[in-house]
């Protein structure tokens, strides 16, 4: 699915140069569920942003699905991104002014999908995450767990090859957190490739592989026995 070679990301301001990622080598295969762990500021989110093509590496190579994407212009990246990647955020990032259904549909608006097909897929994915009965509600009327399920549905509706989750359980209580993790596990079993950043070792246990980071480098990788 994706291969990173000697990938670095450096942030510069007038006075400070910060190396967020330092010569990362990482390979993720189709159908994997990878958890990225590490303390605050270790570079997990930067890595995830680069994987998700929301950010570009300063140097190194990033091959996604056989295509070199490091150095592609933003518009090209946006094209690759919308075809292949779904996002789930810690703070859900739902649009308050839109209903549940409209929030999910948002992910299809910028694809060329006919409206009937769009509706069908939105209904399907709402059933899948169990939020269909709340279709007309606004995000502010839902619990945190329900909101994150909407966000998962939105990430899924475009049939992405890769789902990126940035601390998807960070804003949830234990019970709702477990629910979301089970849902991701189920999606992985059905064939989705998932990369997740998390602080929680127990949630990392749902993943097939755990990547530990420190100071912009990959410290340890361990695979869970299948």
């Amino acid at each position: 699915m994706l291969t990173m070679r000697e990938l670095s990301r450096v942030y510069r301001t007038d006075t400070v140069e910060t190396t967020a990622l330092d010569s990362i080598n990482l390979e993720i295969a189709d159908g994997e569920f990878v958890a990225i762990m590490g303390p605050s500021g270790c570079g997990k989110s930067t890595l995830l942003n680069i994987v998700g093509m929301l950010d570009s590496p300063s140097s190194g190579s990033y091959v996604f699905d056989g295509q070199e994407v490091a150095g592609l212009p933003e518009a090209k990246l946006a094209d690759v991104r919308k075809q292949n990647i779904g996002f789930i955020f810690q703070s859900f990032n739902l649009v308050d002014e839109l209903s549940v259904r409209e929030n999910i549909e948002l992910a299809l608006l910028y694809h060329d999908v006919a409206s009937a097909e769009r509706r069908r897929r939105v209904e399907e994915v709402m059933d899948k995450v169990g939020i269909a009965h709340r279709a007309r509600h606004r995000p502010s009327q839902l619990s945190g767990g329900q909101q994150q399920r909407v966000a998962v549905a939105r990430a899924l509706v475009g049939n992405p090859k890769l789902i990126l989750a940035d601390e998807p359980t960070g804003n949830l209580d234990t019970q709702h957190g477990e629910e979301v993790m089970k849902m991701l596990q189920q999606l992985n079993r059905e064939g989705s490739t998932i990369v997740m950043v998390t602080h929680s070792p127990s949630h990392a246990d749902y993943a097939g592989r755990v990547v530990n980071m420190l100071d912009g480098k990959i410290l340890i990788e361990r695979r869970r026995a299948a």
Binding site: A75, F87, N93, L94, L106, A107, L109, Y110, H111, R154
Partner: peptide, 16 residues
């Protein structure tokens, strides 16, 4: 800004 960010993440172009 946030909403626009979300829309962009899901593929909206500048002209959208």
């Amino acid at each position: 800004t946030k909403e626009i960010g979300i829309r962009k993440v899901f593929g909206a172009r500048v002209r959208d």
